[in-house]
Design a protein around this nucleic acid. Sequence first.
DNA 1: AAATTTTATTTTGTTCTACATATTTACAAA
DNA 2: TTTGTAAATATGTAGAACAAAATAAAATTT
Lengths: 229, 229
Amino acid sequence: MSENELSKDLGRIHTSTMADVIELRIREYLKKKSFKPGDALPKEIELAEALGVSRNVVREALSRLRMLGLIETKRKRGMILTNPDILGTLERVMDPLIMDKDTLQDVFELRLVLEMGLADLLYIRKTDKDIEELEEIVDKEVESKEHTFRIKNEIAFHGKLYEISGNDTLKRFQRMLMPVFGYLMSTKTNQKSGAVTHKDLVSILKNGTKHEFREGMYEHMLPHFERLE
Amino acid sequence: MSENELSKDLGRIHTSTMADVIELRIREYLKKKSFKPGDALPKEIELAEALGVSRNVVREALSRLRMLGLIETKRKRGMILTNPDILGTLERVMDPLIMDKDTLQDVFELRLVLEMGLADLLYIRKTDKDIEELEEIVDKEVESKEHTFRIKNEIAFHGKLYEISGNDTLKRFQRMLMPVFGYLMSTKTNQKSGAVTHKDLVSILKNGTKHEFREGMYEHMLPHFERLE
DNA sequence: AAATTTTATTTTGTTCTACATATTTACAAA
DNA sequence: TTTGTAAATATGTAGAACAAAATAAAATTT
């Protein structure tokens, strides 16, 4: 692996392809001209000629922007700028099996941070109906001790919390983080959960203070936090 | 805008292009065959033939995967799967000027959640040197009351907090959220900050408890939280 | 004159061919 | 064993061509 060492020391040369360049140029162009959603972009041929590349290259770049949700194209009408789906691309790459170890750990911690920071939104937006639904979820917990059920229930409980937050982006984000979290859990031996149970958390959310909830959540997550350093 | 209303009610028809389909198919293929980073992909022509489309379409799809950091290609060696840069694409679309209102609000709240959930990591990882650096930052605050300086300083302070968290992904994520936050701040009239200052927070982080820090951060952010509902 | 149908036009979507370029592989030479 | 050279090969880029869809314009009917 001395070759790898060497390339690390020298720094890999990064010969970017035309599509890379053009993608950037177009994005810069849109920003510079302060395009807003709904505005029409130049035609493919115009872009190709203006940039001095083939239509093929332009299309590869545009294909990327289309994936990002930055633009939409209609057969004859041309292309228009659109509100991007900011999490759409994240979903494509958030796969624990292909992520490097450090990022995996980062995402694990990110989830803990989110969970701990959720309390304020919850206490602003929780309703009686939400509490009822949470109670339903935790009531089912005592019924089964089966492993697969426990996981499902874990997901249901925490998922519901994010739902209560009333923040769709946050909720979707959490749904993406879940597989990563689950993957790491499955690789680690010690899986015991904290002293504070889901049932306890619901009880606090119903009658306790925000501060108590935060402390409870911390205790609930304690085994995870204790592993950090 | 009744047309827009109508299309919203009916649900937009989603005529996906070949590149969309092929991109998905290739991603599914990689997952199904459980490709790992370093594994070589089939050649472009092989993919094109196997999928029954032109090489061009395949290239548009591959161009997307290349942008996601999922694959890397070398001139003759072919393509290999790589550890994707999970935040790379987020950076491309996290622009307050083109995001829709709801997402903007979601991201605003997301930042509050992160900030509130940060305490645990901070208390696990803070060092004396970190505290010193924070003190340096807040010391500069009293010097100038200029608007641009205040913003810069705000960024420096909160940025340093994320740095202390020792989580690169989190830090990078925060850096992306910053412009969104800044944009929303500039549009809102009431910009007064909380009763707890940066200086107070540093003092707590130095000598106080985790719990006190959380309460302090909440007070610091109070004007933002009060706007929520 | 207004409404409808037909035709023409335009722009993206897709395919195909061709060639340039870089890099591996194999082989030859020092 | 190392270095240099040539052949092979996969990707990168270009260009032409046509299909398909949606608009705009023209022609027709009412």
